[in-house]
Design a protein around this nucleic acid. Structure first.
Lengths: 222, 222
DNA sequence: GTCACAAACTGACTAAATCACTTAGCCTTT
DNA sequence: AAAGGCTAAGTGATTTAGTCAGTTTGTGAC
């Protein structure tokens, strides 16, 4: 079963991006230009571009052009077509985080660099006055993973947390305790600053367990 | 900025799948049928379907139809357009696994059910004679995550390991030690069977560290 | 009953347009 | 000279109408 024209075209376009040394935000040739270059028609080009769009490899801007997307170099992705959220799925998510994040926090405590501390501080203090939407509080957990020095860990956490963005307000209603959130985040940062891996791990587990309990005791929804 | 027709169409098709109670393998209406139903043209339908194809939500079978894909209910995905592998990216991956998998193994040790042990045994014994391609040895690690009882953890590990499938043979050349692999897997299973979380965690860390060292000492490639 | 074949479905792709939006430059106005 | 509005070129978004290429299924000959 030979790969379809659309599949080969997708790879070719990725080749153009990579061989051209293009990064997120850079423009790629227009659909008409690509159609001419590969001697095919624009609907076919668009199909290939749509596939790349679905994974965040490219972005369309109507009237302007097509640009390299932010997640083109990602290894794992949050499913953009993920199923609707339920209370069970939220509990499943927090349980998974409860397994993964303490280990990440421990790693971040030993590997963190000065600039990570700065960014963590910023994420903690900005959480009380969210500038970029309701999901900003989750930024802390992504920054914590970033401090591990391993971009892959950051990707995994960011992908997991992106799930919650859409229904963040709904969750806020169940667990809106910014003060405690803030205090616990602050404590984790201090442990990371002190490079105390065991303490960072313990505090992170405690923090997530608090959230889990709050969600668990909340009434069913959706 | 209102969502484009293509975006709304994608959601509508997902609605058809979910409202129809369709699961992986089930057929969805043909492109022409969908075009008629939404009063649009087939190229537009195909664009929407291509986006769903990119995330594994649907699959095309030329001449037969379009079917619900295996990962439609996934929360995280392996990027199908991920960048080419390098030695550095492999080390980054193994480092991330070194952080995550020991914690998963500990959880699996306490949460495992009898059927998980069966599947783990099967994965260990089949690893020596791979039936379904060269990537079969990685199955063990996915099964280990499955034993945690949290499908999300299984998804995360499966997505991380899918990265390696494509270049698995290349990696095999660097670290082809099936005997030791097999022994170490076996030891982890025993710890999981005994529900010894600390031991499962330790053995998993040791196992991955062995792999890491083998890759690290290998010559540069690609 | 079994096999070959032909319709009828399906996806894959083409061709040539038109509409909608953005951008940049020019030109007017101040 | 600076500010604002207009216009034209370039781009994505979508349509229309068809052809080609696989797959499935039922029918009829054997």
């Amino acid at each position: 079963m030979p790969p379809s024209l659309s599949d080969r075209l997708t790879e070719s376009i990725l080749g153009i991006i990579r061989d051209g040394g293009l990064g997120p935000g850079d423009a790629i040739p227009s659909a008409r230009e690509l159609a001419k270059r590969f001697a095919i028609t624009t609907p076919t080009v668009r199909e290939a571009l749509r596939k790349l769009e679905a994974t965040g490899a490219v972005e369309f801007r109507h009237g302007s052009g097509t640009y390299v997307g932010p997640t083109i170099n990602n290894v794992v992705l949050a499913n953009p077509h993920r199923p609707p959220i339920t209370k069970d799925s939220v509990l499943q998510l927090i349980s998974a985080r409860l397994v993964l994040e303490p280990a990440v926090a421990a790693q971040s405590a030993v590997a963190r660099r000065p600039e990570n501390l700065e960014r963590l501080e910023a994420a903690v203090t900005n959480a009380l006055i969210p500038p970029g939407g309701p999901a900003f509080a989750l930024n802390f957990h992504v920054e914590l993973a970033a401090a591990s020095g391993n971009p892959l860990l950051q990707e995994v956490l960011a992908s997991l947390l992106k799930v919650r963005v859409r229904e963040q307000q709904q969750i806020r209603a169940l667990y809106d305790n910014r003060e405690r959130d803030h205090e616990e985040h602050q404590a984790i940062v201090e442990a990371v600053r002190a490079q105390d891996a065991a303490e960072a791990e313990r505090l992170t587990r405690e923090h997530l367990d608090n959230i889990r309990r709050a969600i668990e005791s909340a009434p069913e929804w959706s």
